[in-house]
Design a protein around this nucleic acid. Sequence first.
DNA 1: CGACTTTGACCGGCGC
DNA 2: GCGCCGGTCAAAGTCG
Length: 216
Amino acid sequence: MPSSSHQAMLNQGLFEEKEKLAAVTQMGFYTFPQNLTSSYPPPFAPDHALPDLSESETLFSQRHRVLETASDFGGPQLPFLHRSTANFRPCGNECLESKKIGVQDHQGVCAMKMKRIKARRKVREPRFCFKTMSDVDVLDDGYKWRKYGQKVVKNTQHPRSYYRCTQDNCGVKKRVERLGEDPRMVITSYEGRHAHSPPHHLHDSNDSHSHLNNFF
DNA sequence: CGACTTTGACCGGCGC
DNA sequence: GCGCCGGTCAAAGTCG
């Protein structure tokens, strides 16, 4: 949990984010790579144009300046990501010393751990990535998230954070990480589809939405 | 005291 | 088969 000073910083970041968004919408400035626009609907397109998008992604794109998008179900991908069979993986040039995990003593834990294996084995949900410019890591998309992990992945300078929707029976996850080449850029990846409505909305979200609707 | 974050440990998948 | 790596778990810590 952030301290009061940290919270103030976060609030400041949110404020700046809103300011940026306002500037973006008022100026009509928006960047979207041609290689993506040519083959994929813009991020503010109607929901039906994005067949597997959850509502959070739509809300997210309504509220934040989405610079690039990528999907894991046939759409284009971010230039700095390539697809493996299960996951997006970063492929930057930087080398980051990865933590070496020593040989662990598995005696006495195997039986217990085996129970987890089945639960962990799962079918991959469709994914969708947003690239935004923001001072804050976790951008408000209308849903409430609980952090369940953080990892420094290889070839990245910033840790990747893992979040899960706090709603019961909602298995939607998202990953947040900053771009090594440009720390101002935040990569947010959603996995799955919400089985519920957003618990809350920002009071100014309608304003932002209307701005964007006017723009598009 | 409940909700949430942090962080080390552990696992499966993949490449070699 | 082995080692690396990303993803997840869960205990401990923190906060309101």
